[in-house]
């Protein structure tokens, strides 16, 4: 696995159906199939509960916890959208996610190019330090960061929070890009340099265009991380109009502890953006999260 982890983007996932002629007892096959079916049901149950409940009225839910909605009502969704700024929250989350990913990728690409292809003192040390920062839990930095950000007036600003997220994402971005950049033949770079390209030009015109796969991976893993984060957003964006989706729903759910169908409609709505991304980019999600294991 280490090899795959080390060069995740470079190796395509092996998904061939080879090795078909395996011999297994019928008992083994049946129990494995049974296990998988149970696992799928357990994995799906909460999503099914969420969607079914969101289509019931509170009265219906009180009578019947598990049955199908009868009749289906979309009133909960209408109420959620009309009374709560879900779209604003999503927009805030999107701005923060995309902003952090762009900043982190730019900073990491510059650094990773130098680490992978240039000679300078402290190169290995920088890579080791940066890599080991992947294991530092963000909560450890939160207290001093908050004090520092209060002091310099960055609490409650997009820029401040984007900086924090970008910082947290960067060790992984550097790690992934260094690994990939090292697989790009030096001859390509040297040829461009002889043709008069600047080092920055080499990065933007030769290396990055070749790095589509790791860049997509980075984009997805890092986007998911920022989109799903609660702690940083909760602390650093106290202003109501800057709330992210995760902070929004944690406030929202607290107000509707008794109205579970409404609460479920909110959750279902909040799941939509990532579900769409997952369905469209499933391959990259799986490949990227396996590569990005460290982001948890």
């Amino acid at each position: 696995m280490q090899r795959r982890l080390a060069a995740p983007a470079a190796s395509a996932p092996v998904e061939s159906g080879k090795g078909a002629a395996k011999q297994r007892g019928l008992g083994v096959v049946l129990s494995l199939q049974g296990l998988l079916i149970i696992a799928v049901l357990v994995a799906l149950a909460p999503a099914a509960f969420m969607i079914m409940t969101s289509l019931k009225t509170p009265e219906q839910y009180n009578i019947d916890r598990l049955g199908l909605p009868d009749p289906f009502t979309f009133g909960n969704y209408a109420q959620v959208i009309s009374q709560h700024p879900f779209l604003l929250w999503m927009a805030n989350s999107a701005i923060l996610s995309v902003g952090s990913v762009l900043v982190s990728t730019a900073v990491a690409a510059l650094g990773a190019y130098a680490i992978a292809r240039m000679r300078f003192r402290g190169r290995e040390l920088l890579l080791s330090l940066s890599t080991s920062l992947m294991a530092v839990p963000p909560v450890v930095m939160v207290v001093p960061l908050f004090v520092m950000f209060t002091q310099i007036g960055l609490v409650g600003t997009y820029q401040g929070v984007i900086l924090i997220y970008a910082g947290l994402l960067t060790p992984f971005s550097v790690y992934l890009l260094v690994t990939f950049f090292r697989t790009i033949p030096t001859e390509l770079i040297e040829a461009a340099l002889i043709d008069g390209a600047t080092p920055l030009g080499v990065l933007t015109r030769i290396i990055l265009p070749l790095s589509g796969a790791p860049l997509v991976t980075l984009f997805i893993v890092n986007l998911l991380y920022v989109w799903n984060d609660l702690l940083i957003a909760l602390l650093f964006l106290p202003n109501e109009n800057l709330r992210t989706l995760m902070v929004g729903i944690s406030v929202f759910q607290g107000r509707y502890l008794q109205n579970i169908p409404l609460s479920m409609a909110g959750m279902a709505l909040a799941s939509v953006p990532m579900l769409i991304l997952y369905i469209v980019f499933q391959r990259y999600f799986i490949r990227g999260l396996v590569a990005g294991a460290v982001k948890g």
């Binding site: 650094g111 330090l129 940066s130 930095m141 520092m148 900086l163 960067t170």
Partner: peptide
């Protein structure tokens, strides 16, 4: 090339 990287890591990890 590494200046922004070092700066960001010091700002978000090192100093805190």
């Amino acid at each position: 090339f590494i200046a922004p990287l070092v700066g960001l890591l010091v700002f978000i990890f090192g100093y805190p």
